[in-house]
Simulated scan of single mutants.
Amino acid sequence: MTNPLPPVHPPLSEVRRRPARVAAVQMVSAPRVADNLAAAAALVAEAVAEGAELVVLPEYFAIIGLSDGDKLRVREEDGSGPIQDFLAETAARHGIWLIGGSIPLLASDPGKVLNSSVAYAPDGRRAARYDKIHLFGFEKGSERYNESATIEAGKTPVAFDTPFGRIGLSICYDLRFPELYRALGVLDLIVLPAAFTETTGVAHWEILLRARAIENQCFVLASAQGGRHENGRETHGDSMLVDPWGTILDRKLKGPGIVVGCLDPARSDEVRASLPALQHRVM
């Protein structure tokens, strides 16, 4: 018996979608939450001044600690805490959709956290939460990462609807697993907050982002950490907005800043009409 294709939610012809300005924030986060929230607030305000209606913050925007265990000290209960309050208040103050790239939430294992992306609507209410499913592991020479030591993996893919289309949530290492996005059905935008290492980023970051845009025929907005952190780690940066044809519309290579561009659902419709690959799927 063959497995059915993931459901398409819902046919795009039945959904009213409008263009919108969107922005990715790039940061070089430090071990101090208060400093990072102040930096994020300034960059969100800059994006709003550029007309952004949706803003995405990077993975670990609130803290990149001196050790992996530092994020356990600032983890929050779901729905309560200074980082979540900051996101809700910032979304409401500016009247925007705001996606908090990832924040540490309490996990069922007391020695770990959930690495969670939380989305807020323009009135400050939470619209969605996604817990990172794929946990990064890497070893090359003296460079070693093992997220599963301090992070509890999520289990459920998540997408949510806005006036300008359906948005799929993902975090960093998820980018390497195209089946995650297929499980979400047809999307208008994939958001990818990340803290890619410089080593893997140089080799694979742009290629993977453009591939996800091309194969899903949707926009991809990647919001990255980008620079040398106080713990010595170097993150790749190169935040970008990619269109459904794989064209990079804007990018920020290194350092704090923003990427801004137009999410136009008509562009996705045009690409899908001329190359109906999503309709041609057989498995």
Rank of each mutant, 00 (worst) to 15 (best):
G79A: 07
R251I: 12
A153S: 15
A45C: 12
R73S: 15
N36K: 12
V25S: 02
Q225R: 08
A20Y: 01
L106D: 15
F138A: 06
I171D: 09
G255I: 13
G137P: 03
V28S: 05
E53K: 05
A24T: 07
C218M: 04
P6V: 01
A92C: 03
L180Q: 00
D35N: 15
E143R: 15
L87T: 12
P244K: 02
I99E: 09
D68G: 08
V259R: 00
S117E: 12
V113Q: 07
L98A: 05
L105W: 05
R267H: 14
K71W: 11
S223Q: 04
V15M: 09
Q217A: 07
I207Q: 14
V8L: 13
W245C: 04
D78V: 14
M1C: 12
D243E: 13
L12K: 07
A183Q: 04
L135F: 11
A34T: 08
H204R: 12
I83S: 00
R228T: 13
P193A: 12
E139A: 10
R32T: 11
P4H: 09
I207F: 13
R73V: 14
D188K: 02
L57Q: 07
P104Q: 10
K71E: 12
D35M: 14
L253A: 15
A203D: 14
T150W: 06
R176I: 11
A52W: 08
E179Q: 01
F177W: 12
L54T: 05
A23N: 09
E147R: 02
V282W: 01
A277N: 03
E89V: 09
A153M: 14
E14C: 05
G237T: 00
F219Y: 06
S116C: 14
C262S: 15
R93N: 08
R233Y: 13
R17Y: 05
H280M: 10
C218I: 01
A107Y: 02
V158Y: 00
R21N: 10
L278V: 01
D123Q: 01
I64L: 05
A34M: 06
R18V: 06
H229A: 10
S223F: 06
V113C: 09
G69T: 10
E139V: 04
I133S: 04
A52K: 01
K112Q: 08
L184F: 01
R18G: 00
R144T: 07
D174V: 05
P276F: 03
